[in-house]
């Protein structure tokens, strides 16, 4: 995967499968600390301690169609290649929090890619779930929360109805591009 945003899409799928109702994604870039961090937090079913310890191994997976799962191992490798790290905190019944740190200017750091498109697709294809996206570039911040949109729209209108979808895509694009220098 050539973009960090594709990894976010992949990892959020784990949260969806875990039965999350709210998925929070935070991406923060700090030139001062030369770091890029990605946090994905969900309120899904969580993992037992012994399974959580094994998920960075390719031979650990919950999928039933194959015996390998590469999502988390590849993401961890991406982080470690840039002098960063990956950590996972999980509690059964409470949810899971996955945090990764990357060296921002490291030559091996793959680009963020289309974060707006990724966030949009997650929201649009899972209209029954809530997402909160926070993007920070140095002191600048953009926040997008589907709970606010739901409240403004009322219960009868799904988040994936065409005009709402177009509005969400535009808002995400504008919001992320408006941050200092973009993402």
């Amino acid at each position: 995967m050539k973009e960090l945003s594709l990894h976010i899409l992949d990892l959020a799928q784990n949260s969806i499968v875990a039965g999350a109702k709210l998925i929070e994604i935070e991406v923060a870039e700090s030139k001062k600390n030369d770091s890029l961090t990605i946090l994905i937090r969900d309120d899904g079913k969580g993992m037992a301690a012994d399974f959580a310890k094994t998920v960075t191994s390719p031979f650990s997976t919950t999928r039933t169609t194959r015996k390998v799962g590469l999502g988390i191992p590849l993401f961890e490798e991406r982080a470690e290649m840039t002098g960063g790290r990956l950590s996972i905190r999980s509690e059964p019944g409470k949810g899971t929090e996955l945090f990764a740190e990357f060296g921002l200017s490291h030559v091996d750091r793959v680009p963020m890619g289309d974060l707006a498109g990724t966030a949009f697709l997650l929201m649009n294809s899972n209209p029954q779930l809530d997402f909160r996206l926070l993007v920070r570039v140095d002191e600048d911040e953009f926040m997008f929360d589907t709970r606010q949109i739901r409240e403004a729209l009322g219960a009868e209108i799904p988040l994936n109805s065409p005009e709402v979808a177009a509005w969400m895509m535009e808002s995400l694009k504008e919001g992320i591009e408006s941050l200092h220098g973009g993402m």
Binding site: D114, N124, P127, E163
Partner: peptide, 26 residues
């Protein structure tokens, strides 16, 4: 991802209220 984006754009452009695009695992 680009495949899904294309479907979503097409649904929005054609204003198809009765077509939903969703995702699944493997």
């Amino acid at each position: 991802r680009p495949v899904m984006m294309k479907f979503v754009e097409e649904v929005a452009n054609r204003k198809l209220q009765d077509v939903a695009v969703s995702q699944t695992g493997c």
